[in-house]
Design a protein around this nucleic acid. Structure first.
Length: 309
RNA sequence: GGGGGACUGGUGUAUCGGUAACACGGUGGUCUCCAAAACCGCAACGCCAGGUUCGAUUCCUGGGUCCCCCG
């Protein structure tokens, strides 16, 4: 069948997004199998803010050894536990991986649940520079001292347009804006947000994997139990002892497992899944696939179909 | 069998004779390098029946349920 003029371009890369616990990895592995049957050579590129850490593999539920044997994964457990990490650093690495794979004639499958990281991998985000040395600490201390509303007023004096877009209670974003303003890097973005546009670096088939809420929550609870049973508690204590960085400690369950509070870890993981689903609803150009009661191979087939195989 | 106490959103609590609050949970949203973060919004409550009162979730009586003590 000839390709019609209105048909979307054949995607160069595949991307899988979805909440924790839906089974993204299994779908990716199944997709890789189908692609190989077509003579392709796929590689997964992880888009996950915490699976980048070496030493948190159990807690963050990275793909198992078998899964990695079935599909090579990049950008997994390569950051030392005591190092901080960020979306900016990730973007550079992800672009390099993806471009190198394409150049080598391989097929990148970007898989991940961190919305911002997925965007950073697929699009050219105009990410502002990292804070100058000490700037973050200074403003964070100021935040503790003065409170968010006071800093928000300060920001409103210096950059009214920036203050307008930030809640007066959102200390985190206020600090970020003030850092950038100090470095003379705070720029008013023009044009539509790169975060939600369909403009990507490469033609991409973006699949959003979702599941009936109740079933998803059941799976998350079970998954947390399994992670704990697999020794996440010890892993976290070891990471803690090894001086885990501030960003590494953001992993869901890190602090909870230090105190043995598994129920809180479950709850927070469910809350996180909810935010991921909200992000997915807003994503542009996403093909949503409900995988409730479906087999990974089945789902992978549907993804391939919507790519116009 | 007798005595005492409690009863307020899903849960735990607060308040008040005059349009019921807070926390957690639930849920929708925001998002341009801490994003598994941070932040914002929404829904949802007076055990039942009488009485007193202009007005009762609040006071009184009875019933119900639960808890404690005595036997």
């Amino acid at each position: 069948m000839p390709v019609s003029e209105t048909a979307p371009p054949r995607p160069a890369i595949f991307a899988l997004f979805g909440p924790t616990g839906v089974g993204k990895t299994r779908v990716a592995v199944a997709l890789a199998r189908l692609l190989r049957e077509r003579g392709e050579n796929p590689v997964a590129v992880s888009a996950d803010a915490l699976q980048v850490y070496a030493g948190l593999e159990t807690l963050t539920g990275v793909a198992s050894a078998e899964e990695r044997a079935a599909l090579e994964h990049r950008l997994l457990s390569f950051v030392p536990i005591d190092a901080t990490f960020s979306a900016g650093e990730y973007a550079v690495l992800a672009h390099a991986e993806i471009d190198a794979l394409l150049a080598a004639g391989r097929r990148p499958i970007v898989v991940g649940g961190t919305g911002l990281y997925l965007r950073a991998a697929l699009a050219d985000l105009d990410l502002r520079p990292a804070p100058a040395a000490g700037a973050r600490e200074r403003w964070t201390a100021e935040l503790d001292r003065e409170g968010a509303p006071a800093l928000h007023r300060l920001l409103a004096e210096r950059a009214p347009w920036a203050a307008e877009g930030i809640d007066p209670t959102n200390g985190r974003r206020i600090v970020r804006a003030l850092e950038l303003h100090d470095a003379d890097e705070l720029e008013q973005p023009e044009g539509p947000s790169q975060l939600w546009s369909e403009e990507l670096r490469h033609p991409t088939l973006l699949a959003g994997v979702t599941m009936e809420r109740e079933r998803l929550y059941e799976r998350i609870d079970a998954r947390v139990e399994a992670i704990v049973a697999a020794g996440a508690g010890e892993e976290v204590r070891a990471a803690h002892a090894a001086g885990a960085s501030e960003t590494a400690r953001k992993a869901l369950g890190f602090e909870d497992l230090l105190t043995g509070d598994v129920e809180t870890m479950k709850r927070r993981t469910r809350n996180y899944a909810r935010r991921q689903l909200a992000w997915m609803r807003k994503l542009a150009g996403v093909t949503v696939i409900d995988v409730t009661d479906r087999r990974p191979g089945d789902v992978a087939g549907e993804i391939l179909d919507s790519a116009g195989r």
